[in-house]
Amino acid sequence: MASHVRVSRRGLLKLGAGVAATATLATTPAKAAEGRFQLTAPSTSLIWKKALYDETVLQSIAFDNRNGHIYTLQVKNGADSNAAGHLCLSKLSLTDTILGHMYLMGFGHGVQFGVEPSGTSAYLWTETDGVSDGASFRGTKLARFKFVNGQTLTTSSSALTKYKPIAGSDNTTCAIDPSTNRLVMRYWDGSRFRYAVYTLADVKGGSPTPLSDMAQPSGLGTFQGYAAYGSFVYILTGTAYSDANPAPGNTYVTCLDLRTGEQVQRARSVAGKSLDYREPEGMGIQIVSGAPRLCLGLASGVARARKASIFYKTELI
């Protein structure tokens, strides 16, 4: 399925060069991001039915590949948290030990976020300045802040640096590609969702010129997260098990070419199909010994006692 794409001349030069940048965010540099993940390849379990800091459904995942940590976002405990945009950010080891948490008040829904390692610390890139869509809060800007265990941030906290690369956009989230140090922002332009690609340095420097900007194809299903690696973005869709959606469920991953906007592959994921509830939630790129993994999150368990699982694919084509 084709989608309209706007690519700047600068973007064509950078994206069309084959995306051979060495990872600057990983302890061991990632291999040149020359291929794309084979979505029909089997998945392997990384985390299985882990209780996060709060007991709500997992919303998204991201990796600090330099320091070996996993971060997760979920709606904060409390009856009003979803409607108010209050989030819980958890920090985990690669063996699923909880190492800390933060609360983000009024930020949004936590659909996707990015991690920028900095020495032994990390900065998080999340949505912020959430507004109600009638059922929940959705961010209208991006925020960058340092992870500080136990800290609670509000949208007016001095710890935040805020960015709005595209004026008038809302439903704004982002992911960071550790192989290229690019930020991919998903946003609503008033009529449809789009993906804009920037260098992280340009966004931080206040001169965010998009390398490319393309529409999300229609008809993919319920959106649940995304991740970028090299020349491609991977989109996660689907819903929890139900009478209308029995196992193995309707979870799909769709791959778009960031150079052209073309949909190049779409495949059902049956990772963790034995889980109860099983709702797809969030994607991320993990780098292990220089090799990338395409990871997806799954929520399971009962209300007020939800669990998080993460699966990954490694085959590139």
Rank of each mutant, 00 (worst) to 15 (best):
P280A: 00
A271H: 02
L256S: 06
R259L: 14
L220C: 07
P280D: 03
K273M: 03
R268Q: 15
A271V: 10
R259Q: 14
Q265T: 10
L211Q: 11
G225R: 03
G225L: 01
C255W: 00
D257V: 05
S218K: 07
L298N: 10
G297S: 08
E279T: 04
V270K: 08
T222Y: 08
T239Y: 05
G297D: 00
R266H: 06
G238K: 00
P217W: 01
G282P: 03
R266P: 02
L294E: 05
L294H: 07
A228E: 13
P217T: 06
P208M: 07
P210R: 06
I287G: 09
L298P: 10
Q286N: 13
N250F: 08
Y241K: 06
Y234D: 05
A228N: 11
P208N: 02
Q265R: 04
N250L: 08
P217E: 03
Q265N: 12
A299R: 04
G297I: 06
V203R: 00
E279Y: 02
V253I: 15
C295D: 12
V270I: 14
I287V: 15
G290T: 12
S274C: 00
G290W: 11
L211W: 09
A215R: 06
S289D: 15
G205P: 04
D213A: 06
K273F: 01
G206S: 12
A228Y: 08
G238H: 06
G297E: 09
L211A: 02
I287N: 09
T260G: 08
G297P: 01
D213L: 03
D243K: 13
N245E: 07
L256G: 00
Y277S: 10
P248F: 05
C295E: 13
E281G: 00
C255L: 01
R259H: 02
Y226P: 04
V233S: 14
L236F: 09
P217S: 07
G221D: 08
Y252W: 13
S269E: 12
A240M: 00
L220S: 11
T254R: 03
A244P: 00
L211T: 07
L236G: 13
N250A: 13
L256M: 15
G225V: 09
Y226L: 14
S289Y: 02
D276I: 07
G284K: 08
A267F: 06
T260P: 03
G261W: 11
